[in-house]
């Protein structure tokens, strides 16, 4: 494994909480690794499992899905469905020979900018340890 491995990570962030949390991390100038690319979705419930699996099998090294805390969902309980879907995605990863740590689900509210920065740091660290996606 190359020492300078810089993973590419996609974060799907829901518009109402986590994307706002990422914005607040910016406003608060909280520094986190540059490896994460955010894709804005309206709800964590919008992310199709194929999207995650395809990303990971085409060369993305890690995917994180972020939504509102349970009970705070803008769409009543879209995040609960997202949770179920995330469990299914985790099961699918195994079939594709991918480490379960490459995918993560996290609830981050609009005010939890430190949590956002910390989570991104953790995700990058985890994926760095795993090395590049086997599909790279």
């Amino acid at each position: 494994m190359s020492k300078d491995f810089e993973p590419k990570i996609i974060a799907f962030c829901c518009n109402w909480c986590s994307y706002a949390g990422a914005d607040l991390a910016g406003v608060s100038r909280l520094q986190y690794p540059t490896n994460v690319r955010i894709i804005r979705v309206m709800c964590s419930n919008m992310v199709h499992p194929n999207l995650v699996i395809d990303a990971l099998t085409k060369g993305i090294d890690g995917v994180i899905m972020c939504g509102c805390h349970i009970g705070d969902c803008h769409y009543i309980e879209g995040n609960k469905s997202a949770q179920k879907r995330a469990d299914a995605i985790s099961l699918m990863l195994e079939d594709f020979g991918l480490e379960p740590e490459r995918f993560r689900l996290e609830w981050i509210s609009a005010s939890e900018s430190p949590k956002f920065a910390q989570t991104m740091k953790e995700v990058v660290d985890t994926v760095k340890k795993l090395g590049p996606s086997p599909y790279c």
Binding site: C43, M46, D54
Partner: peptide, 26 residues
């Protein structure tokens, strides 16, 4: 309300959210 739970559930691209279509996310 456009949360997209249907889009993420559909195995056949039979329902999409306008402005956040699966193709656009892809």
């Amino acid at each position: 309300k456009g949360c997209g739970g249907c889009q993420a559930t559909c195995p056949k691209k039979g329902i999409i959210v306008k402005g956040f279509k699966l193709d656009q996310l892809y």
